[in-house]
């Protein structure tokens, strides 16, 4: 719609509505060209393998793929649960107490927030690898070198490493918003500290658990860098996709697996959001 009213000269003034559309245009172009179109292509390629559309079922029917999928899900779920427990204990503690050094402690717990997966993998190697700290200590104490960086446990540790900071931040924010009055009310009614935690605090943190848990889970599902750095015989979905694509040049399978992986990660986040009422602001 044009507001073509001219006060002076013959300049035609752009209406607010057209300006708003103009503002959106670059995003529409970029997103369509470099995201929607490629994703559509990915979905098409996934069905272009020898089995056609059935290629999408291979992730469930092919024993090797299925085992990898289960591996990945179990690992991501374990990461999520353990991270939530650790982050809740530490987050509640930090939010509820004031003591010297608290700010430093919070900084320490949150600084790995944007470490890429590769770096996390390397840090795990330094911790539990062949020249790692844990091996060194165990060697001195028991005369035996404990090395687990390159196993599924190392991967698990790596996933914990990048999940904890993110989840702690969410939990701390949620604890801060808790109404202390509710706890005081419960105590005035005779509830023990445990009962207060169980009946008032934890339920109130529910949405934060769902939200941050979903993010931790989805991130762990798709994490590639850590697995790549630790890379020895660990079968997780992102590694499988990578090897199918680069080593086996199996485009259709890797595309189908990617679509599957992307769908699971997205579905988890969408589901969590519908549960917690839109508070799942996807973090990085």
């Amino acid at each position: 719609m044009q507001y073509g009213v001219l006060t002076k000269g013959t300049v035609v003034f752009m209406s607010h509505k057209s300006f708003v559309w103009l503002c959106l245009l670059p995003l529409a172009v970029v997103t369509t060209a470099f995201f929607l179109l490629p994703m559509a292509r990915l979905v098409v390629v996934g069905a272009e393998g020898p089995q056609g559309l059935a290629g999408y079922l291979a992730i469930l029917t092919e024993p090797r793929y299925r085992a990898t999928l289960i591996n990945t899900i179990v690992l991501a779920a374990a990461t999520t649960v353990v991270t939530l427990i650790i982050a809740t204990v530490a987050g509640m503690f930090l939010q509820r107490h004031r003591f010297p050094g608290r700010a430093v402690l919070i900084a320490m717990l949150t600084f790995p927030l944007a470490f890429p997966g590769v770096v996390v993998g390397f840090l795990i190697i330094l911790l539990a690898g062949r020249q790692g700290l844990i091996g060194d200590l165990s060697n001195r104490l028991f005369g035996e070198k404990i090395v687990f960086a390159y196993s599924i446990y190392g991967l698990f540790l790596g996933y914990l490493y990048f999940s904890i900071p993110r989840v702690i931040l969410t939990i701390m924010a949620a604890v801060q918003k808790l109404d202390v009055g509710l706890e005081e009310a419960a105590r005035s009614l005779g509830a023990s500290p445990w009962a207060v935690q169980r009946d008032v605090v934890l339920p109130a943190l529910g949405p934060a658990f769902v939200a941050s848990g979903a993010i931790a889970f989805a991130t762990a599902m798709g994490a590639f860098g850590t697995a790549f750095t630790l890379a020895t015989n660990i079968d997780v979905l992102p590694m499988l996709i990578y090897t199918e694509f680069t080593l086996a040049a199996n485009f259709a399978t890797s595309a189908a697996l990617s679509v599957g992986l992307g769908f699971i990660a997205w579905a988890i986040l969408a589901l969590a959001r519908s549960f917690s009422g839109g508070t799942v602001a996807a973090a990085g």
Partner: peptide
């Protein structure tokens, strides 16, 4: 943000 980078890169 939700879809793993690997999948987007492949696409």
């Amino acid at each position: 943000i939700a879809i793993p980078g690997l999948a987007i890169a492949l696409a």
